[in-house]
């Protein structure tokens, strides 16, 4: 195997194509203020059937307490952090709250089959493309935003960047990437049959972003 490595690299090193200048770092400053960013984020997200609700910073617990039963959500998954703690005391008794607190191997079938919705933080949002940005971690593991049919994300409206390029520059992503980083723009979808858009294929069928002011 290492022979192949050496052979491939040797062939590549043996030929030095004509030099090209190192490209400038791509930036696409849009000059949008916060309200413009919020409006674009909502419009883009809604254009791909992502739900966005702009609500007051501390209102999300009550919003969920009212909204989840109305939507027939009986089993909610939260992570190990503050979100679950706050929900634990606020949700009506009809809703079961589970916490993602043990390794996936111990409860995979339940995660895939029993959970109606999962709630996570979004680390940031992108205005131009209408994306939420997640860095899943031990508190909020990767499958939360993927396996359950509904994903609810809490996004601080002050954490909207104009676009991907602006975000990785502002947050110095290149200095250290997490295990997994994600841009998510709407619920899962496919157009593999007759190029016709259909939502809710393998990932969540619904993506609900609570944009917190």
């Amino acid at each position: 195997m290492s022979d192949s490595r050496e052979r491939i690299l040797a062939r590549l090193r043996a030929n030095r194509p004509i030099e090209v200048p190192t490209p400038t770092v791509y930036a696409k400053p849009l000059g949008w203020d916060r309200e413009h960013c919020i409006a674009s984020f909502m419009q883009r997200m809604q254009a791909v059937r992502g739900e966005v609700h702009r609500i007051a910073r501390d209102a999300w617990v009550d919003w969920l307490a009212g909204e989840l039963p109305a939507r027939g959500i009986h089993h909610l998954l939260a992570g190990n952090g503050d979100v679950g703690d706050r929900l634990a005391s606020a949700l009506p008794a009809s809703i079961r709250l589970s916490r993602y607190d043990h390794p996936i191997e111990q409860w995979k079938p339940a995660l895939f089959n029993d959970i109606d919705a999962a709630i996570t933080h979004a680390r940031a949002g992108l205005a131009e493309s209408g994306s939420i940005v997640l860095w899943p971690d031990a508190n909020e593991p990767r499958l939360m935003s993927l396996a359950p049919p509904i994903h609810i994300a809490l996004l601080d409206s002050h954490k909207l960047h104009e676009n991907f390029a602006a975000m990785i520059a502002a947050e110095h992503w290149a200095n250290g990437m997490p295990t997994n980083a994600l841009l998510i723009s709407g619920p899962s979808k496919t157009a593999d049959i007759e190029q016709t858009l259909a939502y809710g294929i393998h990932g969540p069928k619904q993506l609900i972003t609570l944009l917190l002011d």
Partner: peptide, 24 residues
């Protein structure tokens, strides 16, 4: 490719599951 401003998922993987992480 598909005339989308962005796809639903852009997935950046830099590590296998780290100690303490619960999936991946």
């Amino acid at each position: 490719a598909t005339g989308q401003p962005i796809t639903t998922y852009f997935n950046m993987i830099s590590r296998p599951r780290q100690p303490g992480e619960l999936d991946g």
